[in-house]
Design a binder for these strands. Structure first.
Lengths: 160, 160
DNA sequence: TCAAAATAGTTGCATATGCAACCAATGACA
DNA sequence: TGTCATTGGTTGCATATGCAACTATTTTGA
């Protein structure tokens, strides 16, 4: 994938290779595949499962709702990931006595073990990826991601 | 989503917000949703359908295989998108007489009409998105996407 | 204090997806 | 020329997904 996004805006053709959202999507897919090598085959986790585990590993315990907020997943995705993780006893839950709609989620010992094995592997993939960027470029990347995310978010909320 | 990816690499926690692949994925999802407003509701297209149409609109005719290469989709995705598009007669195909495994794909008149309506809408969304970046930042973005894509691709090929 | 609105989480359904197996046609080459 | 490998494309199956509807509980407020 090589192209650029300059000159976009008006043409009658889309020219996928110069269409930023397309480029971003292709990049994301590739990066996501790379990271998946840290958890998918070896532990039979899907991305959403891993995300929920990551949220819990970062800060336990959490309710499903808090997991939603921290992972940017919606509640159906989270509910289903949790049910897969409960089946495999990687996560356990107890009902919140203060508000019985809520469930308090924690990694089990096994879940935590997997979390601790996957984190360094995932970070290692990230590090290998980022070796092509110098420190200034990494800062640029962070800044661009933030700016674009906020903008996209804003446009979506305005639009409907 | 605000955070950064500096300082990553070694910690025992993943800290999703500082994990570049996660940040990228969240951004991509949001951007993708934004662009989808240009084709999804109004024309009942899914992303893969739209991608195939975009490839054809950019350069007709193509075989399914060529669509794969240009869109970075795999052949199953393309095959299914095409079958949806054939059902709706947005795309037509004729068998290649030189190699009867191949099908020559073209947008129909209706398909082309939709393509011509969606392209400016999609480009307009992109433009609104990119208003938060100055020209230098846009160039940076292009460069970073290319670098990271090539790197991820390389690591994936090496790894497995 | 009770009905209506809001919130946490789950589920049904129709549809999409990934993977491997598959079919048909072509190409390679002994 | 006949067999084997390759390529273009499709399909079956099990599973994942999006959406809207749903249950159960808590909150609001007249």
């Amino acid at each position: 994938m090589t192209g650029n996004t300059r000159g976009g805006g008006a043409g009658r053709r889309l020219e996928l290779d110069t269409f930023m959202p397309y480029r971003l999507s292709v990049l994301q897919q590739e990066v996501s595949r790379l990271i998946a090598t840290a958890y998918a085959e070896k532990y039979g986790l899907m991305r959403n499962d891993w995300r929920v585990m990551a949220a819990l590993g970062d800060d336990q315990p959490l309710t499903a709702n808090e997991v939603c907020r921290r992972t940017n997943m919606d509640k159906v995705q989270v509910s289903r990931a949790i049910s897969r993780l409960l089946n495999r006893t990687l996560v356990a839950r107890t009902q919140d006595t203060d508000d019985r709609r809520r469930w308090i989620l924690r990694l089990t010992a096994t879940g935590d073990e997997i979390y601790r094995e996957v984190v360094p592997a995932a970070r290692a993939r990230e590090a290998e990826l980022l070796t092509v960027l110098d420190p200034a470029e990494r800062r640029q990347l962070d800044g661009l991601i933030d700016k674009l995310y906020r903008r996209a978010n804003r446009l979506l909320r305005e639009g409907g």
